[in-house]
Nucleic acid binder design. Structure first.
Lengths: 203, 203
DNA sequence: CGCCTAGCATAACGATCGTTATGCTGAAAC
DNA sequence: GTTTCAGCATAACGATCGTTATGCTAGGCG
């Protein structure tokens, strides 16, 4: 019956094409025709595998979320120092952006401004936000800081800031030099050590 | 000849409608028809005043940029303490968002992900980036920090982070409570004082 | 008054959007 | 060898996009 279909190539080509075009040119600005042309696939095939463009967008975001979480997992597995583990989110971004060829900013941030509130892909944006908030809080707790929530909140601010600046950087090169993520990691490290020094002497 | 036209209302209504719809629903997702319907204006009138939709988008971004810069100017005029002046960018965002009814994140950040590189509105995104970078550097220099560029860079990271988190917040309420901008101001203040304490004893 | 020009609405344009109905092709089942 | 069915391409659909051609209406000037 439901034998393993030989349709892997078509579906995979579709996802690859969507991944590149949606990320590079934006979701709304990328027409279905462009995806079909790049994947060399017919319209009927797309609608046989996905629930229209919205379904393809959701699949694109899901793939991106899983890949991103996996990158973070890998980096986290290599770190033992509590502070390094807290800052691993920045290293994971660098690794993730090296794995995929990412020139623009955060895909989830971009999708958050493009997608309507009831879009099926919104669940993956929420999943990304939840992953960041929960994992950073856990790591802050492991690190033994006095107020894990506030520390996680601060790190999240640095993280979002770095990703947002990447989106800006694509427009105006300006005075920005180097990688915003790496600079954010450095500033975050300063802030973090300052916060921990404040707390530990009293313990 | 070019007598002052009585067309103020039509053009103004157009700008108002565009401002609300572009900001609320996104630029690409907002059709010209929706703007025309809200402004109660005919298509011909739009194309008589603006160079198509792109021209209207550019005018929308220009208005937003000027209003934002004015808000910052006003806040800056009230501050005398160098640190307060450095942190005024956060207060200006709060004031700006109170003046206009802003529920979503930064309009420039959203436009940066939506607009193609050759769009006529890009100049205002670049103007915003330039204003932030230059003014923060100047204020950092006035404050007498050892490395104005790095301080401006760090504050810009906090600023972009706060705005990006507003965009996220609209999607996933998550653990976020309160205003991201106000929290970013507080964390930025901590970081800034820590940095200034590091430097001043050596002077 | 009669003309003329500016400013606007009505209506329609071609292009492109996302989507689907129809028909071909090729391998497994008997 | 014939049947059958899944997978795919060709072609076209209605809807909506941004844009423009046409016509009406009000006010300045002869």
């Amino acid at each position: 019956m439901t034998r393993a279909p030989a349709s892997r190539p078509a579906r995979q080509r579709l996802l690859d094409a969507a991944g590149e075009l949606f990320y590079e040119s934006g979701i709304a600005a990328t027409g279905v025709d462009a995806v079909l042309a790049r994947a060399q696939v017919s319209p009927a095939t797309l609608y046989a595998h996905f629930a229209g463009k919205d379904g393809l967008v959701a699949a694109y975001l899901e793939h991106r979320f899983r890949h991103w979480r996996q990158s973070w997992d890998e980096v986290l597995a290599e770190r033992t120092d509590p502070v390094d583990r807290l800052l691993s989110v920045f290293d994971a971004v660098v690794r993730y952006r090296e794995a995929e060829g990412n020139r623009r900013g955060c895909a989830f941030l971009a999708a958050a401004t493009e997608l309507p509130p009831d879009h099926p892909g919104q669940q993956w944006l929420a999943a990304d936000s939840r992953l960041l908030a929960e994992r950073l809080s856990e790591l802050a707790e492991e690190a033994g800081v006095v107020d894990p929530t506030e520390v996680a909140d601060g790190l999240l601010a640095f993280y979002d800031g770095a990703l947002a600046r990447m989106a800006r950087q694509a427009v105006a090169p300006g005075l920005d030099t180097g990688n915003p993520v790496e600079r954010a990691r450095q500033v975050a490290a300063e802030w973090l050590t300052g916060r921990m020094l404040q707390a530990s002497p009293t313990g």
